[in-house]
């Protein structure tokens, strides 16, 4: 693998930029998707049938649609409906929508781990349902889904590779590898570097997630 050194000499800064862009896309998508997912989960608890129906539809659509199809729709089809979103926000929007659907799903499972008896007790104390949701149900639900959410975050980071399919001004890791493989013979070395970066990032996230899980996990 002697070609790694000359590769890094030439493309080193490009790789760092690409890694930062990957992290940036991941962070923005996850934060927005996670927040949106929480809102959806809470809204789904309200006894409003039309709302529950629409939100269930939302979750099913964005869980089942291929991310690339969604991105292409946002980037290439929406402008025909007079909605023109720039490329980077389009990628973040796509990943945010998909992330929110999976978050809503995992959170709902998390919510179901909260014992009904707690709610009864809270009700009998005169707490309002919304207060119960925010101070009893949600905190416990969130603490119980740290592990799947960590997996989701890693999956999201790997999904930022689809940004290579639209003409972003900057290149993230996968786009950079494709470009290097096309322009030069250093494809294997480029792939090795990118793979190492993805793996390292994933390991850091997994370690952080495991630590957080250990701290906040509720043992029943």
């Amino acid at each position: 693998m002697g070609s790694v050194s000359p590769l890094l000499a030439e493309y080193g800064p490009a790789f760092v930029q690409a890694l930062l862009l990957t992290w940036k896309l991941t962070a923005l998508s996850f934060v927005s998707g996670f927040a949106l997912g929480i809102v959806i989960t809470v809204a789904r608890l309200l006894p409003l049938r039309p709302l529950r129906f629409v939100l269930t539809l939302y979750v099913e659509v964005f869980r089942n649609i291929p991310s690339v199809a969604l991105l292409i729709f946002i980037v290439f089809a929406l402008p025909d409906l007079n909605v023109v979103i720039d490329y980077e926000p389009s990628v973040i929007l796509t990943l945010c929508l998909v992330c929110s659907a999976f978050t809503a799903d995992y959170l709902r499972t998390g919510i179901n781990t909260v014992d009904g008896g707690q709610i009864d007790a809270a009700r009998s104390l005169g707490m309002q349902p919304m207060t119960i949701i925010t101070s009893v149900v949600l905190p416990q639900a969130l603490r119980s889904v740290v592990q799947p959410m960590t997996s989701l975050l890693i999956a999201l980071m790997l999904s930022t590779a689809l940004a290579s399919q639209v003409p972003l001004p900057g290149k993230e890791l996968t786009a950079l590898v494709a470009k290097i493989a096309n322009d030069s013979a250093a494809g294997i070395a480029a792939f090795a570097v990118a793979a190492a970066m993805y793996l390292a990032s994933g390991l850091i996230i997994a370690w952080a997630g495991a630590t957080l899980d250990r701290k906040v996990r509720i043992l029943r």
Binding site: L158, S159, A161, A181, N182, G187, I188, A195, L199, G202
Partner: peptide, 23 residues
Amino acid sequence: IEFLRGVPTLLLIYVCFLVLPSV
């Protein structure tokens, strides 16, 4: 397992398309 899980599928696809043929 860790390698295949930690790398994007699209990246693996690009490797099959662009890199493998060169070897």
